[in-house]
Amino acid sequence: MGSGLVRSPVSATLPQISSRLYLTWGILWSFPETQSHVLVSSLLISWSITEASLS
């Protein structure tokens, strides 16, 4: 049963989104100049919203 936001079940969508965000965050966090940049947070938030609405 879907949550209404995505067509697939939440149990399948949540791990996909989480793993992609974790991977992206890990790559971006490895560069010290990005750690304190506000755009990194907004990138991850906007990508999360996009992923959830397209899944």
Results as ranks from 00 to 15, higher is better:
G4W: 04
L5K: 13
V6L: 09
R7E: 08
S8N: 13
P9V: 05
V10Y: 04
V10H: 04
V10W: 05
V10E: 12
S11V: 13
A12G: 03
A12R: 12
A12I: 10
T13W: 01
T13K: 07
L14E: 10
P15R: 06
P15I: 08
Q16L: 15
I17P: 02
S19D: 11
S19F: 07
R20L: 15
R20F: 11
L21R: 02
L21M: 06
T24H: 05
T24V: 09
T24P: 01
W25F: 09
G26D: 00
I27D: 06
I27F: 04
I27L: 08
W29Y: 14
W29K: 11
S30K: 09
F31S: 07
F31D: 10
Q35M: 04
Q35T: 03
S36A: 04
H37P: 00
H37T: 01
H37L: 02
H37E: 07
V38F: 10
L39F: 08
S41F: 05
S42P: 01
S42V: 01
S42Q: 09
L43V: 03
L44Q: 00
I45W: 07
I45A: 14
S46Y: 01
S46N: 07
W47Y: 12
S48E: 13
I49C: 06
T50E: 14
T50D: 14
T50C: 12
E51W: 05
E51H: 06
A52C: 12
A52L: 15
A52R: 12
S53F: 11
L54M: 13
L54G: 02
